[in-house]
Every structure is written in structure tokens, then in C-alpha cells.
Design a protein around this nucleic acid. Structure first.
Length: 309
DNA sequence: TTCTGTTTAAATCGAG
DNA sequence: CTCGATTTAAACAGAA
């Protein structure tokens, strides 16, 4: 039993890596994306250990955000106040936490230089292409490993912010808000809707976007059935409605759905490399080689902390 | 100025 | 022990 006043087990360093902690925070948010400050907040709120030496661990945290490709930056809309971008999980980092240890991943996914550079020059284009790639045709389908985020729901029945399953920030629901069903039913082109809502929709991307959005919805596939880890050191905590952003109409309005980071591919994307234009100015050869990529592994689910009480 | 974000380098730790 | 993931430190640029 933890003793009040004294250091208790809860003050010990949590058995999670910064990557895990950050992902927990992001996953816990309604929009599946958070500004840096909210990530800090999330961690400090439930892990007393991180209420100290903030300068140190926050620097490490930021390093992780930048260094790991599993985290992507999503720009704020001009009308959204606040500093910095929103951080989200890369759609393909689904198995990141299935490696038996929350401390470290088993291995990292290496990306080919060509693909890396390709995505640098045109993130959005690459993003869509990338996803188009492992989607429909795949033998694996929606609930398959690729293109889905892991079991965040169903932890011992403890609630998560998204009962219906994970909603990627780029998911249609998060882009156009809850009216999306009506919108889809209306038959209006997605790009029209996006444009109407103020999202930039490059003309040359229209066709791609329109064909892609419907599929992005598969990311919200719920896993469920994930057993609660035996270790209950870190009790569940409650979900606070963070990461929610509204426009003047009170409608949920996530930031611009435009990934900045390169989106590593899990496989070849035939015929797509020719679509980008211009050099990859943001992509230094060194970083291409060193940058970590998607995570891979298997084992367990992210856990306890995710569940708030 | 403080906060964000990127990057390099080195130390540390775990798994095999 | 080695390899590679993670952590820590630190320099630095840029935005709010």
C-alpha cells in the first residue's frame, strides 16, 4: 500500500519509454493528436515521477517526437490559437507497442532512401499514395496489421475516449466532424467538403483524396478483446476531453490534415515515385539513413495508463 | 524570452 | 559481448 506523504511506487519511473508515453497521450486524445504541451500535461497528470526534472525528460520527449517517424506533425489551422503543431501517430505505426516491453521496441522498420526522399518532397501526396497502397487489394483487410493502430480500446472494459475505436486524425470523422455521415450520404465529393471547411485541397490531389478518404475510415476499426495486463502498478485514470478543438459553430475541427513528416512505406509503391516533383530539400542523406521508422514487433498492448478513470 | 522542433553525439540499457 | 533501442545532453534555429 502506498503511504501518503512518503514516496510510493507511483513515484517510481514508469516502465514506459517516451515513445510509449507519448503515444498514450496521443491515443487518449479525442482527436488522436495533441500539441506538445498537452502531451507533457498528460504524462505529468498521471505519472508523478515526471513532475520533476521536467527540463530533462521534456527535452528527451521532444527529441523522440522529432527523431521517430512514428510521430507526425499536423499543422494548426490559422484560426487555431496556440503554439506549435499537433502531434499524431503515423498511421502505420500500428504494431509499435506489441513488443512485449513498453520499454523498448524490438526493431525498427527501415525505409528505402528513394521512398523517403519521395515523401519529403510531397508529404501529402505520399501520404495518400502510401495508404492507397496497402488498402483495398490487400488480403488483409481493415483489421489487419497494416494501416491500423493497436488495441487501445477494451482494456478491461475501461473506457477510452473513443468507444467506437481509434480515429486517426486524418480519418474522415476527424476531418469533417460528426456530420460526416450525412456528408458522405450526400454524395458530395470529399474535396468539396474539405474545401468548404477550409482545408487546403490542392487541385492535383483531388482525385486521389476523394478516392482515399473512404478508406481512411478503416483506421477506426476497433480491436477489442485485449486482455488487461497483469501488472496494475499504474491504475487507470479518467479520460479528460483533451485534444478537442471547435470552430465557431461548435463543430469539431481538427487541424489541417497535412502530414509534414515523411511517411515511411511498408513496401514498394509501384508507379508512385514519379509523381513527386522537385528535390527533397528537407531530406538530408544522413537523416534518411539514420531516421528511425515505423515500429514493428508484437506482444503487448499499450496499456494501463491509457485508460483513464 | 520562452517554447517548439531538429539534430548530433554519447551514454545507457536490454535482448539475443 | 554486440547490436540496436532508448535516454540524456546540448547546440541551435525559428515561431509566438
Amino acid at each position: 500500500m502506498p503511504r501518503p506523504g512518503k514516496n510510493s511506487y507511483s513515484d517510481q519511473k514508469p516502465p514506459y519509454s517516451y515513445i510509449s508515453l507519448t503515444a498514450m497521450a496521443i491515443q487518449n486524445s479525442a482527436e488522436k493528436m495533441l500539441p506538445l504541451s498537452d502531451i507533457y500535461k498528460f504524462i505529468m497528470d498521471r505519472f508523478p515521477y515526471y513532475r520533476e526534472n521536467t527540463q530533462r525528460w521534456q527535452n528527451s520527449l521532444r527529441h523522440n517526437l522529432s527523431f521517430n517517424d512514428c510521430f507526425i506533425k499536423i499543422p494548426r489551422r490559422p484560426d487555431q490559437p496556440g503554439k506549435g503543431s499537433f502531434w499524431a501517430l503515423h498511421p502505420d505505426c500500428g504494431d509499435m507497442f506489441e513488443n512485449g516491453s513498453f520499454l523498448r521496441r524490438r526493431k525498427r522498420f527501415k525505409v528505402l532512401r528513394a521512398e523517403h526522399m519521395a515523401c519529403k518532397s510531397s508529404p501529402m501526396m505520399h501520404y495518400f499514395h502510401h495508404h492507397h497502397h496497402h488498402h483495398p487489394g490487400s488480403k488483409l483487410g481493415p483489421a489487419s496489421t497494416v494501416g491500423r493502430l493497436p488495441h487501445f480500446q477494451g482494456y478491461g472494459g475501461i473506457t477510452c475516449a473513443q468507444p467506437g475505436g481509434f480515429k486517426h486524425p486524418f480519418a474522415i470523422e476527424n476531418i469533417i466532424g460528426r456530420d460526416y455521415k450525412g456528408v458522405m450520404a450526400s454524395g458530395l465529393p470529399l474535396t468539396s467538403v474539405m474545401h468548404h471547411l477550409g482545408y487546403p485541397v490542392p487541385p492535383q490531389l483531388s482525385s486521389v483524396v476523394n478516392s482515399m478518404w473512404p478508406h481512411v475510415g478503416m483506421l477506426s476499426e476497433s480491436m477489442g478483446g485485449v486482455p488487461m495486463p497483469a501488472t496494475s502498478e499504474y491504475a487507470p485514470f479518467s479520460v479528460s476531453a483533451k485534444g478537442l478543438y471547435h470552430n465557431a459553430n461548435g463543430q469539431t475541427m481538427p487541424a489541417v490534415p497535412l502530414p509534414i513528416k515523411p511517411t515511411p512505406s511498408l513496401g514498394p509503391v509501384p508507379g508512385l515515385t514519379g509523381l513527386q516533383s522537385g528535390p527533397a530539400q528537407l531530406c538530408s542523406p544522413a537523416s534518411v539513413m539514420e531516421k528511425s521508422d515505423l515500429l514493428e514487433g508484437k506482444g503487448n498492448p499499450l496499456h494501463p495508463a491509457l485508460l483513464l478513470s
